[in-house]
Design a protein around this nucleic acid. Structure first.
Length: 323
DNA sequence: AAGGTGGTCAACCGCTCTGAG
DNA sequence: GCTCAGAGCGGTTGACCACCT
């Protein structure tokens, strides 16, 4: 099939940035006649441009309903959440952000959000903690520190976090051998969405802990500017300014949003993940489901060496969590 | 002041998808 | 079912600008 011939250079069509005069011609024509056929439009509008260039200029810049200016935090959250589910489907993401174009979202992602995720130690494509050697090492050190420092996070929570990571690993392994599905209606959660929820859950546990550490140390210095040390407050590359929790589902609260096998997922199970809406009771339930086998130990309890990690991690059927 | 560097974003490129004939 | 034009999408490029040395 090949390229559309309208964009060949042969006709001496103009390329590059649009002048105000060209913009005016295009706007005037579309306002009077609609765009109709993009290929025919340049000639009819008196523009020495290819139709494709006209379409792009109109849809990304001149359209009257375009919203310009900085992205709000809410928009940023929406992009993060949708990207964790849809990946680089910019046009699909754009349909959830009125007035924003796919091009604008793509640029915003590449220049801001991607870097933020990388700074936080996440793979921007998978939204999972990065698995390369260096970052894995830092996360392992982080986990080790969690266990060594009971006042900052107890062993119970560390065990739960490890369980979450195990669940993520097992689930992702199963995903890699099957074709993940995306449900556009949000009526039931896809495998990718569930994975995203798991990612967010573990992320949030680490992030909450990092915030707690910052507050305890009464420091106003942004964490990312602190040197990497083994101190309990600076081992996580987490920027507290960037909320990275999974947002409330787009179609409302307190309904079943997902299904994995015969298990259903209710968003309220994850409500505690949101900074602004802690739900201690639900959180306790969630955590106790995750870490039931360790519930007998006290918070200031025995040291890491006396912990039976095998028992904590694998004897309890923690897949109950998502039922 | 001049040159270098990095960030941002509009625009282009090349490919796929879709629907009409 | 096949071909082709038109439309749309995601990746990439390059102009422009601000900041730094």
């Amino acid at each position: 099939m090949g390229r559309s011939p309208c964009c060949d250079d042969e006709n001496g069509l103009k390329k590059g940035h649009w002048t105000p005069e060209e913009d005016q011609k295009l706007v005037d024509y579309i306002q009077k006649n609609g765009h109709g056929s993009w290929r025919a439009l340049p000639k009819l509008a008196g523009l020495n441009r290819c139709g494709k260039s006209c379409r792009l200029r109109w849809t990304n810049y001149l359209r009257p309903d375009i919203k310009r200016g900085k992205f709000s935090e809410e928009e940023e959250q929406t992009i993060l959440s949708l990207h964790s589910i849809l990946g680089n489907k910019w046009s699909a993401i754009a349909t959830h952000l009125p007035g924003r174009t796919d091009n604008e979202i793509k640029n915003f992602w590449n220049t801001h959000l991607k870097k933020k995720l990388i700074q936080m130690g996440f793979d921007p494509m998978t939204h999972r903690p990065r698995t390369d050697l260096f970052t894995s090492l830092s996360h392992l050190i982080a986990l080790a520190k969690l266990v060594e420092q009971p006042p900052l996070i107890d062993q119970e929570q560390a065990a739960q976090l490890a369980k979450l990571h195990s669940l993520q690993f097992l689930f992702q392994s199963s995903l890699s051998s099957s074709t993940p599905t995306i449900n556009p209606n949000n009526s039931s959660i896809s495998d990718l969405e569930l994975l995203s929820l798991l990612n967010s859950a573990s992320t949030q546990m680490l992030q909450n802990h990092a915030l707690f550490s910052i507050e305890n140390n009464a420091t106003s210095q942004p964490l990312r500017e602190q040197p990497f040390t083994t101190s309990s407050s600076s081992y996580l590359p987490v920027d507290p300014q960037v909320p990275f929790c999974f947002q409330t589902p787009l179609n409302g609260d307190d309904q079943i949003i997902g299904q994995v096998g015969n298990n259903y997922i209710n968003p309220s199970n994850f409500a505690w993940l949101h900074h602004s809406s802690p739900a201690p009771a639900k959180r306790e339930n969630f955590l106790s489901n995750l870490g039931e086998s360790s519930s007998g130990s006290s918070h200031g309890g025995s040291g890491a060496s006396s912990y039976n990690w095998n028992e904590l991690l694998f004897e309890e059927p923690f897949t109950n969590t998502i039922s």
